[in-house]
Structure formats: C-alpha cells, structure tokens
Amino acid sequence: MTGVPVPYRVVRTRPETADTVSITLAPAGTAALAPFTPGRFAMVYAFGVGEIPVSVSRIGAGELVHTVRSVGAVSAALCALRPGDRVGLRGPFGTGWELPRAAGRDVLVVAGGIGLAPLRPLVLAALAAPDAHGRPNLLVGARTPGDVLYAKQLSDWAAGGGPLHCAVTVDRPSPTWRGRVGLVTELLNEAWFDPANTTAFVCGPEAMIRATARELVRRGLAPDRVRVSLERNMRCGTAHCGHCQLGGALLCRDGPVIGWDLARDLLTVREL
C-alpha cells in the first residue's frame, strides 16, 4: 500500500470531441496532491469502477484538467462525470516533459490525436516563459477536423500574431476543411527551428511517435533531444505492479517521458 486516492470534485466538464472530454478537478476537501508539472500523470479513480493513468492537460491554480478519451470502462465512467461528482486522485507520478531541457533552444512540440492532451500544459508553460527558450512550435495531427482537441485554442494560435508557430493537419479532411491534410511530419518544413539547437517533445500513438522521432533525427536533432511519451498498462503508478515494463524501464517511474536515445531500441522490438 503506497497511498490512497485523494477525493477531488468535478468543477466542470467540457466535451472536446465525440469521444473525448476535459474534466476540471479541484480538491473536494483540505487534502490536495502535490503540484504537477507538464507530462506527469495521476492515477484517476472512478468510484466503483477502477483507476487509470491520465496525464494532466492543464495545470491551474488549485485546479487540474484531465482530458480523457472514452476507450474502456474507467475512461467511459470518467467521460460521463458531471459537475459536482467526485473522483479520487493519486500522484503526481512519472517523469515530466521537463521544459528546462529546452532552455535556450527552440521548442518543437509534435502531437498526434489524444497525444496533444499531455503536451498542452507544456506549450502553455513555454509561452509563459518566452525568454527561456527559442521559438516555440506546435504541430498537431488529428484524424478528422472534428477530432481536433482544443480546436478554438489551436485556431487562435494558428491564426498567428503570437510567438507560437502552430499548425494542424488531418488524415481525412471534411468537405469544409481548408487546412492541411497529411501526416504531422509534413508540417515540419514550415516550422521554425534549428535542428542543431532544438528540443522536441512528441506524444501520440506509438507508430506516429516512431515516424516522427525518426524524421526529427534525420533532420539533425540529437536523439536524446527528442523526448517521447510512451504508454503501457499501469496499475499502481509506484513501480510495484510490474505492468508498465518496457525492457529495462518501468514507465510509471522511468517514464512516461523518455529520450528517443533510449526509446528507439525498445520500440523496435516487437511485443517487448
């Protein structure tokens, strides 16, 4: 036993897409978890159903936002929450994105699908400290225009005017989509970064991560400057249950964010 869930109250919920909801949480009582940093995750407990790892998608004053896609029993229960409902939280767990790794460098954030959720607080943190880094870039891939998370915020960013270079591409355009169509790596040409002086942060389905990391290294990024967030089954978050092993890594402890220098070999062995 390594700690019990702390009760949190659902402040508001916001549907992001047909199957994805952002849930804003605040402590239900006096107890609260230690502060989160971007990329770290909580074990989120749905009463009577179970617990799943979910990254924070926004870190506010006294509030946490988790963006959850309904793919299983627990995530479905979380997506069905209403304001005032209670959940339990344990954490923060895992390595974060560690934005200071990009100090003095261009910041290149590449997201695929729900992978944008854990990256959003990183983008916000980079924007909040503009002098600490070179130019921030956010490249987003989604399935269809209707599957783009945080669409309003992204379109504001993509409209330009701010310091962030933001671009969105989809796999399958709708008839009214006027934006880019293609794999997220196809947005790299227009991003503004110096490969010799850039830290990249990548999250999405594993095959997208592999393709992106490989392309970034081909363009001259050092493998350890490509930070990727990986996913495996997690039951405990405290490095005791053994489920999240990927080779020598326990992803709840040594990840979920690790360098491509380590991830590369782990992700190319099938069924590791």
């Binding site: 019990v4 239900a28 009463f47 009577g48 959940v87």
Partner: peptide, 18 residues
Amino acid sequence: LWSVDRGADGELSVTEER
C-alpha cells in the same frame, strides 16, 4: 488497499487499509 464510501451528498471518503 483501501475502501471508499460514498455519502448521500456524493462525497467520497477513502479509508486506507492499515
């Protein structure tokens, strides 16, 4: 590991099993 009781007001009280 723990037990959780949900009150009439929806409040969760978590009891660590020790």
